[in-house]
Simulated scan of single mutants.
Amino acid sequence: MANLRKKLPPLTALTAFEAAARLSSFTRAATELGVTQAAVSRQIHLLEEDFGFPLFRRLHRKIELTEKGKLLSAAAGDAFSLIADTVADLRSDGPDDELAISATISFSHFWLLPRIAAFSRAHPEIKLRIITQDARTSIEASDVDLAIRYGTGTWSDGQAELLFEDEVFPICSADYLLTADPIRTPQDLVGHPLITSDIDDPTWTGWDEWLAAFSVKAPKKARGLRCSFYTEAIYAAMNGQGIALGWNRLVADLIQQTRLVRLTEASIRTRAAYFVVVPARKPKKESGRLFIEWLREVSAIS
């Protein structure tokens, strides 16, 4: 290393030369480097003295590289580009690399996004990418670093850690409650429009299962709105279109904000739970470990 330093000219002078050669201007090089034009000119003059020959031809209002200057410019440009690429690769492996998190639309919308700003404030160096999708894809075969899933916790593409279980109860808007017939028991729900969602998950709790838990038979022809996604069902309830089933963890904030009302103390525990899943065979990122720690802390209090 000592011999290498003796062979190389000063790095400051090389940096000034590379910028001036690339931009064909001492003035523009000075602007890019944040120094004066005189400082750039002085560094290049020192470099030329060290070599013993000129690197630029100073013409009227412009500069041109000499033949030897062109050789040095090509070598310096390649060297600086290699260093820049290597630094970028090293940084991409660090904790400030983008962390890709997959979550269902409803979990992302109602639980994760309202809370995630706290994580970003605690770890501003970590870039987050939130991928919202209800269709479950393999995290081993994708660029997802971790997934938050609702289910039983047994997935072949990753290792699952329980975040929290949940309970389900009927919800509606305050406006709907003011105009609707009184609702005191689960049986009273049958005469109201019951909002449903087409969730392709056998562990998801629907109206039939919820009412059956209280020995109430669901109407054969429900007159409530049918939605493709659970998120739509919640918004329909907030807009007074009927009664939906609320997952406590997902709607607790909306109830606290009085955008939704819990109709009864009657509730049932869900058959599944929320888990954070990490790929079994992918390298673990430090940013992922920090995010999971944060999830544990927040899950314990909200």
Rank of each mutant, 00 (worst) to 15 (best):
R5I: 14
T12C: 04
A13K: 04
E18W: 02
T27E: 15
A30Q: 07
A30S: 12
T31L: 15
L33F: 07
V35Y: 01
A38H: 10
A38Y: 09
V40C: 05
L46Q: 11
G52M: 10
F53V: 08
P54W: 01
R61H: 15
I63F: 09
L65I: 06
E67K: 10
K70F: 03
A76N: 06
A79Y: 10
S81G: 09
L82F: 13
D85I: 02
T86Y: 13
A88F: 11
G94S: 13
D96N: 14
D97N: 13
A100V: 14
S102A: 14
S102Q: 14
T104V: 01
I105K: 10
S108K: 05
H109N: 11
F110M: 05
L112T: 05
P114Y: 10
A117M: 09
A118L: 12
H123K: 08
I130M: 09
I131Y: 13
T132S: 15
T137R: 10
I139V: 05
A147Y: 00
R149I: 05
G151Y: 06
G153V: 00
G153L: 04
T154N: 13
W155H: 11
S156G: 07
D157A: 01
D157I: 00
G158D: 06
A160P: 01
A160Y: 03
E161N: 07
E167C: 08
I171C: 10
C172W: 00
C172T: 14
A174K: 13
L178C: 09
A180L: 09
P182R: 11
I183K: 03
P186V: 03
D188H: 06
L189F: 04
L189H: 05
V190H: 00
V190F: 02
P193L: 06
L194V: 01
D198R: 13
D201S: 07
W204E: 08
G206A: 09
E209A: 12
E209P: 03
P219M: 01
P219N: 02
R223T: 14
R223W: 08
G224E: 02
G224H: 01
G224C: 02
R226W: 03
S228L: 10
A233T: 00
A236Y: 04
N239Q: 12
Q241H: 12
G246F: 01
G246V: 01
L254K: 12
I255V: 13
Q256S: 14
L260D: 00
E265N: 14
E265C: 07
E265F: 05
S267W: 10
I268H: 04
R269K: 15
A272G: 12
P279Q: 10
P279A: 06
S287L: 08
E297W: 04
S302V: 12
